[in-house]
Nucleic acid binder design. Structure first.
Lengths: 122, 122
DNA sequence: TCTGGTGTTATATATGACCATAACACCTAG
DNA sequence: CTAGGTGTTATGGTCATATATAACACCAGA
């Protein structure tokens, strides 16, 4: 059942990204409780500590709030915060490399709908 | 100055990718010797073992040939092999996630010059 | 109070990535 | 042969990731 883990990324990072995606997609709205640490751990067959580490990142980013004994809840400005922070991060860290790869593989036209660079290498 | 390493990827993987990029860009042609293990290790301030691991991946992929006592040399069909293999890999593994992220962040128009698509292209 | 849900911390273990240092194996040039 | 360049292997250590197991701290409800 567990959507297997990507080998090129730590599990706790992938769990964090999954929650972020849910917030961005509106599946998790402000005030909503996150799936509990133990729950996620059981469902995904990972260690509670691993899930906790992911969730702590989310609190560090100001996205969720912990309430001991109750759970963790999505903050009010979470989505807006993410749209800004993740955009910055994506455009600065990921996109340039992806773009370089696309051009290198000659996929510019196919993926971006733009003409490739002026001819140079064969 | 070693071009700092990306934290989200093992160094040996990044070294491998760098050589792949050089081959795709035509900076390394068939018959050319790769920068030596010791050389890269010194230049980039990493352990020779780490470089070796990267280079062994390249031989596993049939891109370069080792000649003990001489060095490692780019194979004949290397670039064509890469264009095929890397395209497949990129389109199957990396691009879908990148595309999802782009759409999630509302960057579709900005980066792709297209309106967001529902799903599914081949 | 007790029960059962939450997050949290503590030990101990295993594996992968990376490092420092050194040695080995192979080839070329002299 | 020696000298110096390749790739390769061996020891031994550090750190990050993830695991199993257990306990602690907090809160709601019967």
């Amino acid at each position: 059942m567990d959507p297997e883990w990507n080998d090129s990324q730590p599990i706790y990072r992938q769990i964090r990204d999954r929650v972020v995606a849910m917030i961005l997609d509106g599946l998790l709205k402000p005030g909503d409780p996150l799936p509990s640490v133990r729950n996620v751990a059981t469902e995904s067959r990972v260690n509670p500590l691993t899930v906790l580490k992911a969730y702590q990142q989310l609190t560090d980013e100001g996205l969720v709030e912990k309430r001991r004994g109750l759970g963790m809840f999505v903050n009010e400005g979470a989505r807006e915060l993410l749209l800004s922070a993740e955009r910055e991060k994506f455009l600065k860290e990921q996109w340039p490399e992806v773009l370089a790869t696309i051009q290198r593989l000659g996929l510019t036209d196919e993926l971006l709908g733009k003409p490739p660079k002026p001819a140079g290498e064969g």
